[in-house]
Amino acid sequence: MSMIQLSPWDLALASLLVLLLARMSWRLRLGVERRVLIAAARSAVQLTLVGLVLKVLFAQTSLPLIGLMALVMLSVAGFEVMQRQTRRFGGPWGYGIGSLSMFLSSFSVTLLALTLVIGVEPWYQPQYLIPLLGMLLGNTMSGIAIALDNLTRNAWEARGKIEARLLAGQNWEAAIEDIRREALRSGLIPIVNAMGTAGLVSLPGMMTGQILAGSPPMEAAKYQLLIMFLIAAGTGLGAMAAVWMGSRRLFDERQRLRLDRLRGATKN
């Protein structure tokens, strides 16, 4: 099996479908035609650019350039985590907790996979590093965003209960124990569900891509399995780090609950 190259014409044909969708939206007065077209144009531009950037990266295998790309990916993911918080930490912590836990989990798991599992030579070969890191960042990002959001929102609502436990002489970790556990659980549920239904409902995106590009299905399945395990580990580690740092930051050195460190609900 070999890969069938897509010509610009093939893509133009597919884009006609999007135009048709926009036209239908206009006819049915759904009012989303503008947004459909803008989103389609954005994805075309962004993916073309990423394709070009990766082409340059793959041709050079230069560590500084790859590091720069990884940094850009991390900072965008960090921003996204911050944006998804109803009540986020004020100051640098709002950005820092999410980014640092993503950095710790995604980068270490990617490194582990590259050196010990896949055994790429050199370990930073971009054809492996960039897609792996992207998958991990994308998934840990959702897990961490959900877990952190859950932690801060529930702590905000349970202020009376947390302080009652502090007044009863419990230390801060005991006082926030329930909320912390719930936050961690909520962050892990998406990946656990994804593993549980993998292959039964739909083929995961990466496996689909490999099959379309001509890989034997068993090879694609093995890679997908590897990725899923990595994502599960990365999401778990990342959510734990974020929830730990976040809950620590909710209390000060005298073990007072410091909800004033959270910024109020601004968005949504």
Binding site: E163, A164, R165, L166, G169, Q170, N171, R254, Q255, R256
Partner: peptide, 27 residues
Amino acid sequence: MAPPLWRRRVGLLPAESFWWGETVGEH
């Protein structure tokens, strides 16, 4: 003094009481 120890020895009864467990005895 560690804060938990201080709060146990100098007990505050807030105007509104909060309960974190299911039964009274758990507290």
